[in-house]
Design a protein around this nucleic acid. Sequence first.
DNA 1: TTGTGCGGATATGTATACATATGCAAGATG
DNA 2: CATCTTGCATATGTATACATATCCGCACAA
Lengths: 213, 213
Amino acid sequence: MTNRTAENIFDRLVDGIVAGKMIPGEPLAEKALAEQFGVSRTPVREALHRLEQSNLAERGSRRAFFVREMKAEDLAELFEAVGEVESALAALAAHRLTEVERKTLMAILEEGRACDDPEAYSGINKHFHNTIKAGARNSALAATLEDLNLRTMAWRAANFHENTNRLATSRVEHQAITEAILAQDAEATRSLMRSHVAGSYVLVADILARREP
Amino acid sequence: MTNRTAENIFDRLVDGIVAGKMIPGEPLAEKALAEQFGVSRTPVREALHRLEQSNLAERGSRRAFFVREMKAEDLAELFEAVGEVESALAALAAHRLTEVERKTLMAILEEGRACDDPEAYSGINKHFHNTIKAGARNSALAATLEDLNLRTMAWRAANFHENTNRLATSRVEHQAITEAILAQDAEATRSLMRSHVAGSYVLVADILARREP
DNA sequence: TTGTGCGGATATGTATACATATGCAAGATG
DNA sequence: CATCTTGCATATGTATACATATCCGCACAA
């Protein structure tokens, strides 16, 4: 009786969209998806509604769902929002990190220094941001960030693969953020984190500019 | 063929929870609600899922929905999150408000000065915050704030009715925030807005402390 | 008396049938 | 020939029937 089917459909749809297999603007018809996944329309409906609330799908006329179009403008807003929320979390973390987490952060920096593979570094990067997010001790804000990040993930992924230059920059910025956190300088932390996220957006903007000239 | 039924159920459930008519911890059984509203389980299911995503309901064992319990700790996190997001929006608005919006803001202050009725002031307060939210030109962040606010609304409402003292304080703080925005001082705006939201929380914390001693 | 296990009751998950609204196309009419 | 109207096709919204898992109570045994 578990909700596994609907959850499963949702996850598969998210994967499809995030991986870019489902093109923005593509219609998400209940019947077609139900047939494709071999289930009835009911769990598909549920998954689509969750997609809408996650802002990965939107509704057009006839109440039909579509993969959400991402205009350059929307993406810029999204990254700005991520920057604001993540920097707020980091500022809180500056005063709230436990000793264990501080050591974790330093260990992550060390690990990052020894890593030249963009793929592997992506994991280290996640660990870094997750540690800060957890250290802020605010689950409401953390959940908010996760929501926002879900929508930028596709772009971040595309980004890291194309650009190894970003790796070195990221390393330096992580270093600076860590230092500010360890110094419990909330305002510096906030400002550095905001720039860090904005920096990761610049590349995305480039990709976007090349796609829609 | 509109989605009116499910939407309607959702709104009514939100109202019920926000108005405090549905007690936290109270089970939300599909069948019972369906009978209560005179519809089938299908739209009720949809409404409950939306409630869950809005964090107004949660699931227990047996996958049943309950009105979400709000511990003092959770509420504190929530208000902190609201403060961070709303202050971020205000900081952005400091540089992005249109001339029309600036004048609106000043008009709202004027209106607030002439208002001693807490009920009416609540509307003016909303208008003030909405103007800033809109002026930030970031719909993703604005939507985030709305999500968070939905969950604090019940407490804010309870609050304003009990305390007329808060009205004068709010007026002064709005004045200060407006001045910072008009001066395009993003950092001052951010800091003032954060305190403003935190201040509105203090009263909620008092109510909470009296309820759970 | 207490603990374990089985079975019924019940609530949720899924499938399907039916209702209804929207869009498109074809035909009639000016 | 253009435009409006009408009807059908199709997709979503809702209701209901069926499947299945969880919980509770009762009985039986240690």
